[in-house]
Design a protein around this nucleic acid. Structure first.
Lengths: 251, 251
DNA sequence: CGGGCTAGCTGCGAG
DNA sequence: CTCGCAGTTAGCCCG
């Protein structure tokens, strides 16, 4: 137990020292900004990090119930109402979270030295890069497109050219393709067709596709290419693709 | 400071008691599942909640760097290697997070009684419901569509009928409309056109729209309807719409 | 359980 | 700054 008046300076010091601050207590929370919300009294955790991310965690869910990135944080002990107000605010967009503590069970700032960044494998970017090395497993003679295309880099996953000289725009999805993915590909194909006045093919590469997405893809005259990939090992991934060659058009 | 061997039973007890468990210490984290990741040694917080959500928080970002919903949690003190392994796993999809602690600075389980659910205002659902009450501010004679449409409830935001008997499919966005929103509306319009063999209009209702989205919308023969809304007060929100009537087609 | 979609999405990267 | 998009998206709701 920490008294509310004691808490005020402790919070201020921890925040200015860029510590990871944990406050647990009974509070209610009001938010106003892009939307508005109210959370009535209950016991929760307030978590403030070095980058001024501000989060209220209930004892459920991965994500905080109220939150703000890059918050300006002010703390004020209200003697008249016997409560401690912790306020996070920012502009652009203008937003405010007010946390009003009635009691505090626990309060501590932690100095967390952590200079490591996560290394993630199996992202869509990584997949696309792998695929670009060898497109022939998709179709004989398919290779990266060499020409100039006024397309913002990174928008289209892969641009290729087939044996007949058609441009092939390829959208890669690391998980089951949905209606969204088909719409996206359709968009790219249409935009490309307008720019280049030749035949453009649209190819969706994914491990699976929903039934509705498949129907829509066929309506749009796009093509689906099923593929599986191994997360653990880049080599295995490409080999896996090659092994799949025979059954690629199974849906 | 808590010794690693002491930590094992403490964690087990807190987890089985559905407490919110906070462990802070030096650890490395390996994840394998939908993707794969490695996070080298550093000081972080492990946060396990009553619903078995499992999260590793660095001293930055709102979101955990590694996480799992509904985890099966096992704890094992490894005397040989002088480390404590906390493992979260689940199937479908099969995933594993292994957290290996070298030292623990802090460990505590908190009983958090919190029976409150958040009340959120200004969601898209809420907006759609408000709008449905009176569509005439968009266009004279526009009213909710009465006929039977084999459309899954909740997919299309609003279905309306205009003075000429056209079906009007309305997509509502609470923030600036993007290419995605236009694709979505286009999708609905096409599907509806196929079902009903009459003219279908597509209307995008949003406070703003990006330049590219506007171009695409025009290409598709869709219509944009700018509107602003007040979050705080439902009445004010509708009044706000009415007041905007004169300038609605400003982009 | 899968499909489809919103989210106060967050976070990233390019122009 | 905005735009566009991926995400181990999460979380919700409906068939």
């Amino acid at each position: 137990m920490v008294s509310l008046s004691e808490a005020e300076p402790l919070i201020k010091r921890a925040v200015s020292a860029n510590e990871m601050l944990v406050v647990i207590g009974n509070c209610y929370v009001e938010y106003f900004g892009r939307a508005a919300s109210k959370l009535l009294n209950g016991k929760r955790m307030l978590l403030i990090k070095a980058d001024k991310s501000f989060a209220i965690h209930q004892n459920k869910y991965l994500r905080p119930i109220n939150y703000m990135m890059n918050a300006d944080i002010t703390v004020k002990f209200n003697a008249a109402n016997e409560c401690l107000e912790v306020i996070a605010s920012k502009r652009n967009p203008k937003e405010t979270i007010k946390v009003t503590f009635n009691s505090i069970d626990f309060l501590q700032g932690f100095k967390l030295d952590d200079f490591q960044d996560i290394r993630l494998f199996g992202s869509e970017d990584e997949l696309s890069a792998q695929l670009l090395d060898d497109l022939s497993f998709i179709e004989n003679g398919l290779k990266p497109y060499k020409g100039e295309i006024p397309f913002r880099k990174g928008v289209v996953d892969i641009l290729a050219e087939d044996e007949k000289g058609n441009i092939v725009v390829i959208e890669v999805k690391r998980r089951k393709a949905t209606l969204d993915a088909v719409s996206q590909l359709h968009r790219y194909k249409e935009q490309l067709s307008k720019i280049k006045h030749k035949n453009v093919r649209g190819l969706l590469l994914a491990p699976e596709i929903t039934v509705n997405a498949m129907k829509m893809l066929e309506d749009y005259g796009l093509e689906f290419f099923k593929f599986d990939f191994e997360i653990s090992n880049p080599k295995a991934r490409i080999k896996g693709l090659q092994r799949k060659q025979r059954t690629l058009f199974e849906v």
